[in-house]
Amino acid sequence: MSKLRVNAFSLSLDGYGAGPDQDLQNPLGVGGEALHKWAFSTRTFRKMFGEEGGATGTDEDFAARSMENLGAWILGRNMFGPIRDEWPDDSWKGWWGNNPPYHVPVFVLTHHKRASFTMEGGTTFHFVTDGIHSALEQAKAAADGKDVRVGGGVATIRQYLQEKLIDEMHLAIAPVLLGAGENLFAGLDMPKLGYLCSEQVATPLATHVVIKRA
């Protein structure tokens, strides 16, 4: 049965999934890049971006798990790019160049219509203007029995958590304090929403935590 998952989502010790002031120079917000050091050297993430080699071990194990059995992704608009309000044109194709690392359909949540387009490697971006439930329905249909992964950002994950729609969530908590940005759990009562911690493993660069819906 298809699951809705969050995987390899990095958080600071104080709960922020991105730093403040996202722009072209700081796509993860100011200081946000430090959250992802655990992932950058892994074999899985290097392969996603066309690079060879990479580390093995626990960080790699979680990175590899994050890519298993994926049939579609859901992204918030901020994860797709820094543009706000109406699309000025169709020139922005995402942060990732001509060959994004997804290779499956990707559904981007937005308030503004835009035509779908396909990139190298089989990634097709679709833009969903009628909410998270519609995006999930379309993503599950496209995934054809495989899982759907919510890639972020924080606001998008929070919406799916509030609706109790996420089945499993892997967080990589980095030994970093950001002090500001987008906080994942602020105001959310996770036990009341039916979630519990099912796994915890620490490495020098991150504490990996798996949260599942009871």
Rank of each mutant, 00 (worst) to 15 (best):
D130P: 01
G131D: 02
G121T: 11
N26Y: 14
G151E: 08
A18R: 03
T156G: 13
L196D: 13
G29Y: 00
G179M: 06
F127D: 10
R65Y: 06
Y102G: 09
G97Q: 03
F45T: 14
C197V: 15
P82T: 09
G151C: 04
G145K: 05
V150N: 10
G76E: 00
A214I: 12
T110G: 02
T156L: 08
H112N: 14
I173G: 01
H170Q: 15
G94T: 13
S66G: 13
T123R: 00
K146Q: 08
Q25N: 15
T207G: 12
T58I: 15
V154Y: 03
T207R: 13
D167W: 11
L193Q: 10
V128G: 10
I132N: 13
Y160D: 00
P88D: 03
G54H: 06
G32P: 09
A142R: 06
K146H: 14
G76K: 07
P204F: 01
P100E: 06
M67P: 03
H208G: 05
K3H: 10
D90N: 15
P88F: 02
L161D: 12
V108W: 07
R114P: 11
Y195M: 06
Y160R: 08
Q138N: 07
V108T: 12
Q22H: 00
G76T: 06
A142T: 12
K146T: 06
A180C: 04
T129G: 08
V201S: 08
Q162H: 02
V148C: 03
L24G: 05
E163G: 10
L178E: 04
K37F: 00
P27Q: 02
P27Y: 00
V108C: 14
R114D: 02
D189R: 06
M79D: 05
D23S: 04
L28A: 06
V201Y: 00
V150F: 01
G81W: 01
K47I: 04
R149Y: 09
D23E: 07
K3Y: 10
G179H: 01
M169L: 06
G121S: 07
R213L: 06
K93R: 15
L161H: 00
A172G: 12
E86C: 02
T207K: 01
L24I: 13
I74K: 08
L109W: 03
V201I: 14
I157D: 00
A174P: 09
W95G: 01
K164Q: 14
